[in-house]
Amino acid sequence: MIIQTIAFYVFAAFVVGSAFMVISARNPVHSVLFLILAFFNSAGLFVLLGAEFLAMILVIVYVGAVAVLFLFVVMMLDINFVRLREGFLQYLPIGASVGLLLLVEMILVVGVLATSPDTVAVAAAPTPDITVVSNTEALGALLYTKYVYLFQSAGLILLVAMIGAIVLAHRVRPGVRKQSISAQVSRTRAEGVELKKVKTGDGI
């Protein structure tokens, strides 16, 4: 138990610390690297919760794809991030105090009330029980039965996002030479080869 607690605090401290570094680092490449560190540590938190599937997904999707994509973008585009972020930290005190004030007010309003016992019961008895089936199996069984409607609708939303990206960003450039495989394959010997009779000593 004590090891788990220590692990939790280590992971949590690293998540918060590296998340802060993401927004405060001067060099955008450092920011992305800290982001990766934050992802890894949150994956550790998921493992502690017994959600190993989510932990692996986080590493594969976010570290493997998203963060690397960010890294590419940051390195390829010549954006002056320092200028973009200028003055960001000087707003931090005001922003943080407003956030803190809101938090205190909300705790005053909501904190005195206990959450519904139903919610606690739902959290305490996950469907189905983790001891019976593995994480991945449980998620799959829920996603494709109870939540199939939402799962499919979420797929449609992603489709719209894709259409939107193409509509707004894709431009047809005229004069681009593309490979046409059918044209290549359907070439006959007659079109491709021309025989010239060369007289000796004349050249072509």
Binding site: Y147, L150, S153, I157, V160, I163, G164, V167, L168
Partner: peptide, 23 residues
């Protein structure tokens, strides 16, 4: 509440793209 949000988001995302359709 979840299906409400999913429907709303499908609609909104399409509308955002349509609003800037004349890019």
């Amino acid at each position: 509440l979840i299906s409400l949000y999913v429907g709303l988001e499908l609609q909104s995302l399409s509308l955002y793209v349509l609003a800037s359709f004349r890019r």
